[in-house]
Design a protein around this nucleic acid. Structure first.
Lengths: 150, 150
DNA sequence: CTCTATACAGACTTAATCCTCTTAATACTC
DNA sequence: GAGTATTAAGAGGATTAAGTCTGTATAGAG
């Protein structure tokens, strides 16, 4: 469904969102990679994609790191997904048929495009503000063990 | 979403279904691979999965090939998908969190599991009889060019 | 019985994804 | 200005998915 890079990107985004609600600093990638248990260099590359997509601002040097450029309620999971995995997910024919579309639908086009649209709407409706808040409500220590222990 | 092998498996299944409604012979994989423009050996491996899953019966030798063991209206796209890609698609957490489930949901678990369920129902509701009939109704020469020219 | 057309099996190759490493460049601290 | 903590950039390695090849077994045809 989503690439590993994309799920890491979402997790990292939720982490950054959570940190930035606590204090307004840049969040260093090194700390983040430890807490999320994701390879530092790999995470760096993923976050660079978010930076060059204009979602994150980055700062080098001590006290550097990354943070979101816009308020958290203006950034959605869709923004993250598109920046990393692109739009193909919401456009591809289930059967991989090249000409499939509304005009020349494949055998499952109508149902499938409806599901794709629902998926799109789901991602679009999830802001970082709302979603990162939910993480704390639910206290997901099972999944993100080190986030909760700093 | 689906692996290449799985989409090829579905296309081949629709082809077999279509052929077997015309005459009751085994469908040779060589002919199928030409018509669908899929590598013969690769397609063979994929169809072996359907055979060992009990969906297809196969016959060696001249006039041999594969055909479905059950009537077409009793076989769904879900059967094909599960035989090739397994059930993970309908079980995995969107964020890849290991403990995510109804008891300890991740931040998007509820919405995501609803979508997964809809996907499952979509596949389950699509029988080969209905779906392969649709292919001819819609005359999908754009996508399956060689199917229509034999 | 032999020949041929087919499926079966598994090793191998290629391509894509995932991840790591090394070397910059830059900003802060003293 | 030197030292250090950080991101940036890109090469390279590891793993998995995708695809190819070679050979074997088997069923039918003559």
């Amino acid at each position: 469904m989503l690439s590993k890079a994309c799920t890491y990107g979402i997790l990292a985004s939720l982490y950054i969102a959570r940190e930035s609600r606590k204090r307004d600093n840049y969040v260093p990638i090194g700390q983040m990679s430890e807490k999320l248990n994701i390879s530092f260099h790999f995470l760096t590359k993923i976050l660079q994609q978010l930076t060059s997509a204009g979602l994150l601002a980055s700062m080098k040097g001590p006290k550097g790191g990354v943070r979101f450029k816009k308020p958290l309620h203006e950034i959605t999971l869709l923004d993250i997904v598109i920046a990393i995995d692109g739009m193909e997910l919401f456009q591809e024919c289930l059967l991989g048929l090249p000409g499939c579309g509304d005009e020349e639908p494949c055998a499952v086009h109508n149902e499938w495009s409806k599901l794709r649209e629902e998926t799109y709407v789901l991602f679009k409706g999830k802001t970082l503000a709302e979603t990162s808040a939910k993480i704390e409500d639910l206290n997901l220590r099972f999944a993100l063990p080190k986030i909760m222990t700093d």
